[in-house]
């Protein structure tokens, strides 16, 4: 372990902010999904970094869980987007607002 922990944390924070920025500004659902993926991976970086820092494997194990969760989430998300596309002809998340109340 050469790089100190702070660098990892900064990297993770930067990744998270990129993901958040994507979620807040983009309209395309696929980019949305990728941004969410970025935020999840930011958390993963944190987990692994702390795991190595503390010298136990719990964090790495959790990272694996998060990856599995992300995969599941993508599967569901893409399923939703397919239906969105079929109904609205595009995957812009600002268009389908009729499902609110």
């Amino acid at each position: 372990m050469t790089a100190p922990l702070q660098y990892y944390l900064l990297l993770s924070a930067a990744l998270f902010c990129v993901g958040l920025f994507g979620v807040l500004t983009r309209n395309n659902a696929l980019i949305f999904l990728m941004s969410v993926e970025l935020m999840l991976n930011a958390a993963n970086v944190n987990f692994v970094a702390f795991s190595v820092y503390h010298g136990n494997l719990t964090g790495q194990l959790f990272a694996l869980f998060v990856i599995a969760l992300a995969a599941a989430e993508v599967a569901v998300g893409i399923g939703i987007f397919l239906v969105l596309y079929r109904n609205f002809g595009e995957v812009d998340v600002t268009v389908p607002t009729t499902m609110r109340w």
Binding site: V23, T94, W101
Partner: peptide, 17 residues
């Protein structure tokens, strides 16, 4: 109160953040 629900996902994400 239901009127604060716009149906636009971005707004929800912004509120969350």
């Amino acid at each position: 109160i239901k009127r604060i629900q716009t149906g636009i996902v971005t707004n929800y994400a912004a509120l969350l953040a």
